[in-house]
Amino acid sequence: MLLELTGISKRFGPVEVLSDVDLAIDAGEVCALVGDNGAGKSTLVKCVAGIHSVDGGEVRVDGEVRAISSPRDAAGLGIEVVYQDLALCDNLDVVENLFLGREKRRGILLDDDAMEQLAAETLSSLAVRTIRNLRQPVASLSGGQRQTVAIAKAVLWNSRLVILDEPTAALGVAQTRQVLELIRRLADQGLAVLYISHNLNDVFAVADRIAALYLGRMAAVLDAADTTQSQVVELITSGRSGQLGLTDQNGVRP
Protein backbone atom coordinates (compact mmCIF):
# COMPACT_ATOMS: atom_id res chain seq x y z
CA MET A 1 0.00 0.00 0.00
CA LEU A 2 1.27 3.41 -0.91
CA LEU A 3 -0.66 5.22 1.80
CA GLU A 4 -2.27 3.62 4.82
CA LEU A 5 -4.20 5.53 7.45
CA THR A 6 -5.12 3.66 10.61
CA GLY A 7 -7.24 4.97 13.45
CA ILE A 8 -6.87 8.61 12.48
CA SER A 9 -8.66 11.00 14.80
CA LYS A 10 -8.71 14.76 14.91
CA ARG A 11 -10.39 17.16 17.33
CA PHE A 12 -10.99 20.85 17.08
CA GLY A 13 -11.54 21.77 20.73
CA PRO A 14 -14.41 19.67 22.03
CA VAL A 15 -15.53 18.64 18.56
CA GLU A 16 -14.26 15.32 17.29
CA VAL A 17 -14.09 15.87 13.53
CA LEU A 18 -12.47 12.56 12.66
CA SER A 19 -12.74 9.48 14.76
CA ASP A 20 -10.82 6.26 14.18
CA VAL A 21 -10.66 6.56 10.41
CA ASP A 22 -8.98 3.81 8.39
CA LEU A 23 -8.17 4.20 4.70
CA ALA A 24 -5.63 2.65 2.36
CA ILE A 25 -4.75 3.77 -1.15
CA ASP A 26 -2.57 1.83 -3.55
CA ALA A 27 -0.64 2.97 -6.59
CA GLY A 28 -2.61 2.82 -9.82
CA GLU A 29 -6.02 3.28 -8.26
CA VAL A 30 -8.48 6.10 -7.83
CA CYS A 31 -10.03 6.15 -4.38
CA ALA A 32 -13.03 8.41 -4.15
CA LEU A 33 -13.84 10.02 -0.83
CA VAL A 34 -17.51 10.84 -0.47
CA GLY A 35 -19.60 12.18 2.36
CA ASP A 36 -21.98 14.93 3.31
CA ASN A 37 -20.84 18.44 4.14
CA GLY A 38 -19.18 18.28 7.53
CA ALA A 39 -18.48 14.56 7.32
CA GLY A 40 -14.77 15.32 7.62
CA LYS A 41 -13.57 14.91 4.02
CA SER A 42 -11.61 18.15 3.90
CA THR A 43 -10.15 17.61 7.36
CA LEU A 44 -8.96 14.15 6.38
CA VAL A 45 -7.35 15.53 3.24
CA LYS A 46 -5.67 18.30 5.19
CA CYS A 47 -4.26 15.76 7.62
CA VAL A 48 -2.72 13.79 4.75
CA ALA A 49 -1.45 16.98 3.11
CA GLY A 50 0.27 18.10 6.30
CA ILE A 51 -1.89 21.16 6.87
CA HIS A 52 -3.42 19.69 10.04
CA SER A 53 -1.61 17.39 12.41
CA VAL A 54 -3.47 14.31 13.59
CA ASP A 55 -4.42 13.79 17.24
CA GLY A 56 -4.34 10.03 17.04
CA GLY A 57 -3.63 7.18 14.66
CA GLU A 58 -0.88 6.33 12.23
CA VAL A 59 0.02 7.40 8.74
CA ARG A 60 2.08 4.86 6.84
CA VAL A 61 3.73 5.50 3.50
CA ASP A 62 5.10 2.38 1.80
CA GLY A 63 4.45 0.55 5.05
CA GLU A 64 6.56 2.86 7.19
CA VAL A 65 5.08 5.11 9.83
CA ARG A 66 5.61 8.74 8.88
CA ALA A 67 4.85 12.01 10.58
CA ILE A 68 3.42 14.51 8.16
CA SER A 69 3.46 17.82 9.96
CA SER A 70 3.86 20.26 7.09
CA PRO A 71 3.02 20.49 3.39
CA ARG A 72 6.76 20.18 2.78
CA ASP A 73 6.79 16.78 4.52
CA ALA A 74 3.90 15.68 2.34
CA ALA A 75 5.63 16.86 -0.83
CA GLY A 76 8.79 15.06 0.24
CA LEU A 77 6.81 11.82 0.40
CA GLY A 78 5.41 12.42 -3.09
CA ILE A 79 1.99 13.59 -1.91
CA GLU A 80 0.68 16.47 -3.99
CA VAL A 81 -2.55 18.35 -3.41
CA VAL A 82 -3.99 20.03 -6.50
CA TYR A 83 -5.66 23.23 -5.44
CA GLN A 84 -8.44 24.68 -7.47
CA ASP A 85 -7.09 28.04 -8.55
CA LEU A 86 -4.28 28.86 -6.20
CA ALA A 87 -1.71 26.89 -8.05
CA LEU A 88 -1.18 28.84 -11.26
CA CYS A 89 0.34 32.20 -12.16
CA ASP A 90 -1.89 33.88 -14.73
CA ASN A 91 0.90 35.93 -16.24
CA LEU A 92 3.12 32.93 -16.95
CA ASP A 93 2.60 30.54 -19.83
CA VAL A 94 1.78 26.85 -19.58
CA VAL A 95 5.39 25.62 -19.63
CA GLU A 96 6.54 28.25 -17.14
CA ASN A 97 3.75 27.26 -14.77
CA LEU A 98 4.42 23.55 -15.10
CA PHE A 99 8.06 24.02 -14.11
CA LEU A 100 7.65 26.86 -11.62
CA GLY A 101 10.00 26.28 -8.71
CA ARG A 102 11.76 23.41 -10.47
CA GLU A 103 13.08 25.08 -13.60
CA LYS A 104 15.53 23.19 -15.74
CA ARG A 105 18.78 25.06 -16.35
CA ARG A 106 21.89 24.91 -18.47
CA GLY A 107 24.49 26.69 -16.38
CA ILE A 108 22.69 29.74 -15.04
CA LEU A 109 20.46 29.95 -18.09
CA LEU A 110 16.94 28.59 -18.06
CA ASP A 111 16.62 25.74 -20.53
CA ASP A 112 13.21 26.71 -21.87
CA ASP A 113 13.38 24.42 -24.87
CA ALA A 114 14.04 21.34 -22.77
CA MET A 115 11.17 22.32 -20.46
CA GLU A 116 8.85 22.86 -23.39
CA GLN A 117 9.71 19.48 -24.84
CA LEU A 118 9.24 17.70 -21.52
CA ALA A 119 5.93 19.48 -20.99
CA ALA A 120 4.73 18.44 -24.42
CA GLU A 121 5.73 14.84 -23.76
CA THR A 122 4.00 14.77 -20.39
CA LEU A 123 0.78 16.22 -21.77
CA SER A 124 0.78 13.81 -24.68
CA SER A 125 1.41 10.87 -22.34
CA LEU A 126 -1.76 11.96 -20.57
CA ALA A 127 -3.51 12.20 -23.97
CA VAL A 128 -4.21 15.87 -23.34
CA ARG A 129 -5.19 17.39 -26.65
CA THR A 130 -7.06 20.41 -25.40
CA ILE A 131 -3.98 22.55 -24.87
CA ARG A 132 -2.46 23.29 -28.25
CA ASN A 133 -0.18 26.20 -27.58
CA LEU A 134 2.14 25.58 -24.65
CA ARG A 135 3.35 29.16 -24.86
CA GLN A 136 0.04 30.85 -24.18
CA PRO A 137 -0.44 32.55 -20.81
CA VAL A 138 -2.47 30.50 -18.39
CA ALA A 139 -4.86 33.45 -18.05
CA SER A 140 -6.17 32.70 -21.54
CA LEU A 141 -7.08 29.09 -20.69
CA SER A 142 -10.52 27.79 -19.81
CA GLY A 143 -11.27 26.39 -16.36
CA GLY A 144 -10.85 22.83 -17.57
CA GLN A 145 -7.55 23.59 -19.23
CA ARG A 146 -6.27 25.30 -16.09
CA GLN A 147 -7.24 22.29 -14.03
CA THR A 148 -5.47 20.11 -16.59
CA VAL A 149 -2.28 22.15 -16.21
CA ALA A 150 -2.50 21.96 -12.42
CA ILE A 151 -2.92 18.19 -12.53
CA ALA A 152 -0.21 17.69 -15.15
CA LYS A 153 2.16 19.55 -12.84
CA ALA A 154 1.71 16.79 -10.26
CA VAL A 155 2.63 14.16 -12.84
CA LEU A 156 5.63 16.11 -14.09
CA TRP A 157 7.01 16.40 -10.60
CA ASN A 158 6.86 12.65 -10.07
CA SER A 159 4.27 12.76 -7.35
CA ARG A 160 3.01 9.38 -6.21
CA LEU A 161 -0.26 10.35 -4.58
CA VAL A 162 -2.34 13.14 -6.07
CA ILE A 163 -5.16 14.57 -3.98
CA LEU A 164 -7.94 16.34 -5.85
CA ASP A 165 -10.51 18.23 -3.83
CA GLU A 166 -13.63 18.80 -5.93
CA PRO A 167 -11.62 19.41 -9.11
CA THR A 168 -14.70 19.64 -11.30
CA ALA A 169 -16.85 21.79 -9.02
CA ALA A 170 -16.46 24.98 -11.06
CA LEU A 171 -16.36 23.38 -14.50
CA GLY A 172 -18.85 23.02 -17.32
CA VAL A 173 -20.06 19.65 -18.58
CA ALA A 174 -17.54 19.17 -21.39
CA GLN A 175 -14.62 20.34 -19.27
CA THR A 176 -15.67 18.06 -16.44
CA ARG A 177 -15.47 15.11 -18.82
CA GLN A 178 -11.94 16.04 -19.87
CA VAL A 179 -10.79 16.31 -16.28
CA LEU A 180 -12.44 12.98 -15.38
CA GLU A 181 -10.62 11.23 -18.23
CA LEU A 182 -7.40 12.87 -17.10
CA ILE A 183 -7.88 11.64 -13.51
CA ARG A 184 -8.45 8.11 -14.77
CA ARG A 185 -5.31 8.32 -16.88
CA LEU A 186 -3.24 9.46 -13.89
CA ALA A 187 -4.10 6.25 -12.09
CA ASP A 188 -3.58 4.14 -15.20
CA GLN A 189 -0.06 5.55 -15.31
CA GLY A 190 0.58 4.20 -11.84
CA LEU A 191 -0.18 7.16 -9.59
CA ALA A 192 -2.48 6.86 -6.64
CA VAL A 193 -5.36 9.33 -6.67
CA LEU A 194 -7.52 10.43 -3.78
CA TYR A 195 -10.55 12.09 -5.30
CA ILE A 196 -13.11 14.07 -3.37
CA SER A 197 -16.42 14.82 -5.02
CA HIS A 198 -20.07 15.42 -4.36
CA ASN A 199 -21.10 14.15 -7.75
CA LEU A 200 -21.71 10.40 -7.69
CA ASN A 201 -21.61 10.16 -11.48
CA ASP A 202 -18.13 11.62 -11.48
CA VAL A 203 -17.16 9.29 -8.66
CA PHE A 204 -18.40 6.19 -10.47
CA ALA A 205 -16.81 7.34 -13.72
CA VAL A 206 -13.28 7.26 -12.33
CA ALA A 207 -13.14 5.49 -8.98
CA ASP A 208 -11.84 1.99 -8.30
CA ARG A 209 -12.88 2.21 -4.69
CA ILE A 210 -15.30 4.42 -2.86
CA ALA A 211 -14.77 5.49 0.74
CA ALA A 212 -17.81 6.95 2.48
CA LEU A 213 -17.38 9.15 5.54
CA TYR A 214 -20.30 9.67 7.89
CA LEU A 215 -20.03 12.14 10.77
CA GLY A 216 -16.27 11.79 11.02
CA ARG A 217 -16.26 8.01 10.86
CA MET A 218 -15.48 5.75 7.93
CA ALA A 219 -18.81 4.12 7.12
CA ALA A 220 -17.40 1.78 4.47
CA VAL A 221 -14.73 1.43 1.81
CA LEU A 222 -16.14 -0.44 -1.17
CA ASP A 223 -15.01 -1.68 -4.56
CA ALA A 224 -16.75 0.48 -7.13
CA ALA A 225 -17.48 -2.66 -9.17
CA ASP A 226 -19.50 -4.17 -6.30
CA THR A 227 -21.37 -1.04 -5.38
CA THR A 228 -24.55 0.57 -6.54
CA GLN A 229 -25.41 4.21 -6.49
CA SER A 230 -28.19 3.74 -3.96
CA GLN A 231 -25.84 1.97 -1.53
CA VAL A 232 -23.45 4.90 -1.66
CA VAL A 233 -26.26 7.37 -1.18
CA GLU A 234 -27.44 5.46 1.90
CA LEU A 235 -23.92 5.31 3.31
CA ILE A 236 -23.52 9.06 2.85
CA THR A 237 -26.85 9.97 4.37
CA SER A 238 -27.21 7.43 7.17
CA GLY A 239 -23.84 5.78 7.56
CA ARG A 240 -25.11 2.35 6.65
CA SER A 241 -26.71 0.34 3.87
CA GLY A 242 -27.97 -3.22 4.41
CA GLN A 243 -25.11 -5.25 5.83
CA LEU A 244 -22.64 -2.44 5.13
CA GLY A 245 -21.76 0.52 7.26
CA LEU A 246 -21.33 1.54 10.85
CA THR A 247 -22.37 -0.33 13.94
CA ASP A 248 -22.39 1.22 17.37
CA GLN A 249 -20.34 0.01 20.35
CA ASN A 250 -22.65 -2.88 21.22
CA GLY A 251 -22.79 -4.18 17.70
CA VAL A 252 -26.20 -2.62 17.25
CA ARG A 253 -26.66 -0.40 14.24
CA PRO A 254 -27.27 3.21 15.20
Binding site: T176, R177, D202, A205, V206, T227, T228, Q229
Partner: peptide, 8 residues
Protein backbone atom coordinates in the same frame (compact mmCIF):
# COMPACT_ATOMS: atom_id res chain seq x y z
CA UNK B 1 -19.14 10.01 -18.25
CA UNK B 2 -22.47 11.66 -17.49
CA UNK B 3 -24.17 8.51 -16.16
CA UNK B 4 -21.37 6.36 -14.81
CA UNK B 5 -23.23 5.79 -11.55
CA UNK B 6 -26.33 4.12 -13.03
CA UNK B 7 -24.28 2.28 -15.67
CA UNK B 8 -21.95 0.75 -13.08
Amino acid sequence: LATAAPVR
